[in-house]
Design a protein around this nucleic acid. Structure first.
Lengths: 247, 247
DNA sequence: GTCTTGCTTTGATTCAGATCAACTCCAAAG
DNA sequence: CTTTGGAGTTGATCTGAATCAAAGCAAGAC
């Protein structure tokens, strides 16, 4: 809690994630109730949000920045089990202690709700409960897709799969037409990427270098990556290629 | 749908999974509404329930037996992403097509609900929606625990972890005191186990043999496994050992 | 300016698990 | 009984990724 800062209060109506977060389906009245129990917190890149096992008296939505959920074994082996982007939900209603380490991987702003009143709201407002169910089901699907990646894909396929996801997201955001080069900024260090993909940082670095050598990628500085041919990357990823966006 | 058979109708009040399934919190009235749209299906061991991508006009609870969720890549690599035990829920409200292959790994009986009316019920009955949310959150936690296993554990640890889960379940069911030998029946073939753990069937076989040679396990026939010292197994699994059962 | 320091790349070597290939076991079918 | 076929075990070999070890590089500290 050392580096935590309190931000100014933003009205829900003006919030950038208003239509995608857990509050997406709430009407004006429900929003007002949420607003009454909400507060903002921000964390600088690298700061811990909570440690696994620690008491957690709030749930939250990511407003800006990226947070990572990681599990750690006693001997230090780490596996990232989720990457939280703006509008994603953190915490579990009905549980008092955090199940994972949550860390800010970039500067992070979260919209937090005091847990007790939030749980009460869930009981009363179906809109909130339904949206949370929907988001949880989406996360479950994502987790299961990741299980395929972790259990069965090669290092090369893992890297390509991750870049595909980022590139697809980038393309969707900027409405780029398919076919032209997409440039993405990696939000993770090589080590974090390794923790996400179930690899070592050396293997991550080598595979990225290999893809660059083959012309599948261009590196722009350390963190920037340009993808000249998205389809080629997708082929390497070994996915079905249906790339279906969830409705 | 070739091997599917229709079972006789059971009253929800007499159902073995009544207090743990998605209907757990429903009152008599809500149960009656569910009963109106429910029907049973049974599948023999090995039979497919649905294929990924196929239309799925029902959701269901596993009543007896075990079903597996698997994802398959074009070249045939397979990863099991979930093992469904009695009371577990299959299918996703708000989605018309199956996201995974669902297969009966043992003889299986499912309590199915027609999807449209079930979705309508979710909207109307918070009890149902809340229980489903709770179950989905539990599955998400399980999926994330499995991500750690798939991404970071050794073959030996993977086997031990799986056996620990089975043994813990068995002990809980039979109220065995800690300390005495637990005997479990593997519900999966070596190949299915490999698909679940992200290994090959040969590695599964070798690791089980190794644990037997070391005295950590005793084999009883092909599928039976006796664990004389649960703590030893848990040590090998590399878990935190807190083994907390979710409330 | 040059010294840290954190991140990244690259090289050499090792090793866990995959792959390829027999072979055993057992139960069901003829 | 024999045959057949699915499940499991075991052995020999190969290989992709981990591990161990050095450097390279850029940005901020001094």
């Amino acid at each position: 809690m050392l580096h935590q800062k309190l931000s100014t209060h933003i009205s829900c109506g003006d919030c950038a994630i208003r239509h995608r977060a857990v509050c997406a389906r709430c009407d004006a009245d429900e929003l007002a109730q949420l607003e009454a129990v909400k507060f903002y917190r921000s964390y600088p890149a690298g700061a811990p949000v909570v440690w696994s096992g620690e008491q957690m008296d709030f749930v939250a939505s990511v407003v800006t920045g990226i947070a990572a959920l990681t599990q750690t074994m006693e001997d230090g082996r780490r596996q990232m089990v989720g990457l939280l982007l703006p509008s994603d939900f953190v915490g579990r209603p009905g549980r008092s202690h955090a199940a994972y380490d949550v860390t800010a991987t970039t500067d992070l702003v979260m919209c937090c709700f005091r847990k007790k009143p939030f749980e009460a709201l869930i009981e009363k407002t179906p809109h909130l409960a339904h949206r949370l169910l929907e988001m949880t089901l989406d996360e479950l699907d994502a987790a299961r897709e990741w299980m395929l990646l972790l259990g069965r894909k090669t290092a090369r396929e893992k890297i390509a799969s991750f870049l595909c996801i980022l590139a697809r997201r980038e393309a969707a955001l900027h409405m780029k037409s398919v076919g032209q080069a997409i440039t993405i900024e990696l939000p993770l260090t090589r080590e974090e990427l390794a923790d996400y993909l179930g690899l070592t940082l050396e293997t991550v670095s080598r595979q990225i270098s290999a893809l660059r050598r083959e012309g599948v990628l261009d590196l722009v500085g350390k963190r920037g990556i340009s993808v000249p041919d998205f389809d080629a990357l997708q082929d390497i990823a070994g996915d079905d290629g249906d790339g279906d966006m969830l409705s």
